[in-house]
Amino acid sequence: MKKAWMTAAAAAVVLAGAGWGGWTYWQGRKAAPKAAPAAEAPELPAGALVSLQGVLRAQNVVTVIAPLDGVMEEVPVTVGEEVFESQILGRIANDLLEQNERNATLELERAQARVGALESTLLAARLEESRASADAARARSEYARAEREYQRQRILLREGATAKNTHDATQKVFESTQVESETLTALTRAIQERIQQASRDIEAARKTLAEEEEKLELARLELAAEQVVSPVDGVVVAIRKSAGAEVKKEVDILFDIAVDLTAMEVVLEPEPPVLKRVKVGMEALVDLADLPGDGLPAAVRAVEEGKVYVEFASPTPLARPGDPAFVRLKLP
């Protein structure tokens, strides 16, 4: 009995200790002070000078758009490189245009071969016609002599002044020369007709040749568009499509070229407390690393989408797009 009471008392003590510990822990949590909020940066006073770092950018930029569909095959220029008008900036491979150029070249070669063959045929026909005309002229002359002699022998035979065999021999010569003359005359006319037809064929073939030359010239002009050239003198400030990229005609921009490095601006991204106090038209000073001094006069051109654009006139060609610059502003 006594042993059971002692066991119950011990258990009560343990429970009481646990309850006190839990109450103490809860009180400690309840009494723990809240953390103080972080102190906000103090507002800069009016007239405060701030110096902000930004990136130089050219104000006047010419974009180069893809002149045809295809794949950029090579880009031999780099960002920051000076380029001149008509300099090759890249090459676009277009299988269809290359095949068109090959087909046009083949058709032109065929047209040239046909014209050459027809001209050779015409030349040979003219030589043949020349010989046939000479033979026909000779045959007509002989036929004329034989006809006169035959007519004379007929008269003599009728009057009994010549032998019958002499008359018959003359008649045979007359008849043979007549056949030869008619044959050679007909041959000459046939050759002349062939010459006229060959001339007409050559005229048509030359017309076809001219058309094929125009087609080839057009195909080569289209193929020349594979060479992307700079439209202006300037500095490459961005390459939008690298080698291997697909491009769409008159859709994709390939390059950005700055054309006037005297008209520059600095792009800033100030913190919100400063950004909200920057206004368009505010005066500023731009500090360039390569141009020591009191700074270049500048002005805020625009404040858009969290960025500030400060424009200024650069007196040095050493200031390049992409270089860092500092801008000093006096806050209102």
Rank of each mutant, 00 (worst) to 15 (best):
19 G>F: 13
289 A>P: 01
324 P>T: 02
263 A>H: 01
150 Y>K: 02
76 P>K: 07
293 G>H: 09
31 A>S: 11
82 E>M: 13
261 L>C: 03
123 L>H: 14
282 M>N: 05
125 A>D: 11
224 A>H: 11
178 Q>S: 12
66 A>L: 08
73 E>Q: 14
319 A>E: 05
101 E>D: 13
179 V>L: 11
180 E>M: 12
301 R>N: 05
58 A>W: 07
210 A>E: 13
188 T>Q: 08
306 G>N: 00
274 V>K: 01
126 R>N: 10
4 A>C: 02
258 A>D: 11
86 S>H: 14
72 M>Y: 07
299 A>S: 14
246 E>I: 06
165 N>R: 15
16 A>R: 02
161 A>I: 09
250 E>N: 15
290 D>G: 12
179 V>C: 00
188 T>Y: 02
182 E>P: 01
122 L>Q: 14
194 R>E: 13
66 A>H: 06
246 E>L: 10
218 L>I: 10
207 K>G: 09
124 A>E: 13
174 F>C: 01
184 L>A: 03
167 H>Q: 12
215 K>C: 01
317 P>L: 01
270 P>L: 00
65 I>H: 04
150 Y>I: 01
99 Q>I: 13
191 I>P: 05
210 A>R: 09
198 A>P: 03
110 R>C: 04
225 A>K: 15
244 G>R: 08
305 E>H: 12
144 A>P: 03
292 P>F: 01
289 A>N: 03
116 G>Q: 14
170 T>A: 15
275 L>H: 04
68 L>W: 04
129 E>P: 00
68 L>G: 08
87 Q>F: 01
1 M>E: 13
330 K>M: 07
219 A>Q: 01
122 L>F: 07
172 K>G: 00
151 Q>K: 09
180 E>C: 02
237 V>G: 06
289 A>S: 10
146 A>C: 06
89 L>H: 07
320 R>E: 04
196 Q>H: 13
238 A>I: 07
202 I>H: 01
64 V>E: 07
289 A>T: 12
269 E>P: 00
212 E>D: 08
328 R>H: 15
168 D>N: 10
162 T>W: 04
206 R>A: 08
272 P>E: 11
224 A>Y: 05
150 Y>D: 12
47 G>A: 04
284 A>V: 07
24 T>R: 15
310 V>Y: 06
208 T>D: 04
129 E>C: 05
